[in-house]
Design a protein around this nucleic acid. Sequence first.
RNA 1: GGUGGGUUGGCCGAGAGGCGAGGCAACGGACUGCAAAUCCGUAUACACGGGUUCAAAUCCCGUACCCACCUCCA
Length: 469
Amino acid sequence: MTLRLHDTATRDVRDFVPLEAGKAGIYVCGLTVQSEPHVGHVRSAVNFDVLRRWLTASGYDVTFIRNVTDIDDKILAKGEAQGRPWFEIAYLMGRELDKALDAINVLPPTYEPAATGHVPEILELIGQLVSRGHAYPAEDGSGDVYFDVRSWPSYGELTRQRVEDMEPAEDADPRGKRDPRDFALWKGWKKALEPETAAWPSPYGPGRPGWHIECSAMAAKYLGPAFDIHGGGVDLRFPHHENELAQSRAAGQQFAAYWLHNAWITTAGEKMSKSLGNSLLIPEVLKRVRGIELRYYMVSAHYRSHVEFSFDALDDAAAAFRRIESFLERSDAAHMAAELPAAFVAAMDDDLGTPAAIAVIHEHVRDGNRLLAAGESADDIASLVVAMLDVLGLDPGDPKWGPSGGSDDERLSAAVDVLVAGMLEERASARAEKDWARADAIRDRIAAAGIAVEDTPDGPTWSLAEGDA
RNA sequence: GGUGGGUUGGCCGAGAGGCGAGGCAACGGACUGCAAAUCCGUAUACACGGGUUCAAAUCCCGUACCCACCUCCA
């Protein structure tokens, strides 16, 4: 069986055939670094991280590009409002994003190009479009350059819309456009409103890149005029991806062969982009569950399914993940490169069917627990479980999740271990004397400290209790 | 107005013509001094109305409700 992916352009699931055998080039639209990342922002990153890991696990040599939009109206406005340079905002928010993605084990992209670092490439692409008659400098001398939508007959092909049916944006600035639907490739510097640092010289006067053109230019630079997969959130289908496609094709490039779009995470049916307070910012959510549990929550839904975020559902997901984890703790994964179970491979090959893939993991966990209950070794099954989790970026044994050596966490844990071990010895002697009251009193004291005790054939063990640990 | 998607059990969440994905929660049993963990078992579903079919959660038609996008939101 081969990998099949849902392509927005053809609206069906079809076999993935790479342009070059054994290789896969992916371009994913990253974030505009204008605010702190929340749960919604990182879903896209997790989804495409899973795609990348699966392609890699399937033997592809993957080049994965995720851009950073580090200049736009909002970043400039924020800088203005805070009295700080816009690039300081972009840099700081970029670092916050890196931290958030690292906390949920999203691998760094092969390259992570930023818009401001590619002004020459962008201007070259704009120049091509102008000379081919698909773009024009604004006729009002504003310094803007627009893509001429009417000059490109297949405009709208990605989202199957006809230009005539599109509502002209109410907030669109009509100055100097031939058609209200024409979009900006280059934005002329507004001297009175924008800092000089936000303007680059160009044949059309000083200005800065428009949003859509940066992706076209950077995709071509790092992946070439034709590449395999272009990804992003559903909201980007139009206008962003439609515009990218039009620009790149109008410039004579083949562009992406497959278009993948992930669905939203919403709360109370609303998009998260609105101001919903801070509770959904990644650092806040990570006070409630661990990064690996948040990742499990995201991976347990299919990437094209809309997810209604709730803390209850998040807690459930965390509980489900702990079941897998506790099985692994009670067995010994050999950590050899075990061959993945066929059902897992089939699930992943079917348009990244992570829910079915996770069901396969749970079935293995149950089988493994059954063996353990019968006093047999479940190590082989544990190895398979680890191998499957690893593909999803969910291996608890991955050093990336663990506390770094010599950290406070580790020392604290060692200290607690000494104290709890002493108490458990006392309890053991109480139990030996069948003094249940004293035994339970000791266990209650330990529990009151937020520590759960579990009796096993090899003696009692302790771990931090769920919830308020 | 145009385009795309959705409605599955107490909850989350798969599936896409015939065997109840999986998890969380619940209940019963095993194990345990009692628990916890684990195992075994149980119940509760496919928005509504028609139609096609031997057979529909799945296909078709209609209805209701919900969501997204329509020019700088993942």
